[in-house]
Simulated scan of single mutants.
Amino acid sequence: MSTEQAKAELIEEFGFFDNWMDRYQYIIDLGRELPPLPDEWKVAQYRIEGCQSNVWIHHQREGDVLHFDATSDAAIVAGLIAVVMRIYNDRSAEEILATPPDAFKQLGLEQHLSPTRNNGLHAMLAHIYQVAEREARG
């Protein structure tokens, strides 16, 4: 599935809910489905600065794609990570760099998140783009 297809699928899923309380619950449920992050990756080296909650993102190259593992100690933030992973995980560096973060506006997340959560979301995206830029340069 392409990043565009992943974004379209998320937008469709969010459209099933009539209000933001249901969407928040869906985001939290998505976060509960994240695979556990090994404790050895829950260290300062993988912690994302700019997030109010603790967020850790570990990445590795698997062939031509970048694989990210991530989690947070906050339920809603873990859900935001799950949304980010649906779009950006297991993609080539070039595909990540060619994918604008417009899905979050289309989902209405930016206008419904607190300023600190918005900052955290942008910090996670910035980290993923930085990793992709480094990997694309070789």
Rank of each mutant, 00 (worst) to 15 (best):
G138V: 06
Y26P: 09
E40Y: 12
S92R: 06
I128G: 03
K42H: 00
A44E: 05
I57R: 00
P36R: 02
Y46N: 00
R134K: 15
Q111N: 09
D29G: 11
D73S: 05
A78H: 04
E33G: 10
L121S: 02
Y26E: 09
L97T: 12
N54T: 05
I48H: 02
S92W: 04
I27Q: 03
G79N: 09
A82C: 09
E13Q: 15
D22P: 04
G15I: 08
A136L: 15
A70M: 11
E133C: 04
R47G: 00
H67P: 05
A93L: 03
I87N: 04
E133I: 10
G79W: 05
W56K: 00
Y24I: 14
I87Y: 08
D64P: 00
A70K: 01
F68H: 01
D102R: 14
D18F: 08
W20S: 11
V43A: 03
E133G: 04
N118R: 14
F14E: 00
I81H: 03
V84S: 04
L34T: 04
E40T: 07
E40A: 10
E12V: 05
A44S: 12
L113N: 02
S2I: 02
H127M: 06
Q45P: 00
H58R: 14
A70R: 01
I28Y: 10
P36T: 02
A75S: 12
G120Y: 00
S114V: 10
A98M: 12
Q5I: 11
V131W: 03
N54C: 07
L66Q: 05
H127T: 02
G138N: 09
I28D: 07
Q130E: 14
I81G: 04
Q111R: 13
R32F: 09
H112A: 10
Q25H: 10
A132Y: 07
E13W: 05
F68C: 02
L37N: 07
E12S: 14
T116L: 11
S53E: 03
D22L: 13
E13Y: 06
V65T: 15
P100E: 15
E110A: 07
T116W: 02
A44L: 02
P38E: 13
E94P: 07
I27W: 01
I76F: 08
A82M: 06
H59M: 10
E33P: 08
M85Y: 03
G63N: 05
R47I: 00
Q5P: 03
R47A: 05
Q45F: 08
E95S: 12
N54R: 14
K105D: 15
R137K: 14
H112F: 07
M1D: 10
A74M: 06
E49V: 00
A74K: 08
A82N: 08
N89G: 05
A74V: 10
A98D: 14
E9Y: 13
G138I: 04
Q5M: 09
Q106H: 13
R61A: 13
R86H: 08
L34K: 03
F14T: 01
N19W: 07
G31C: 07
Y88P: 06
K105N: 15
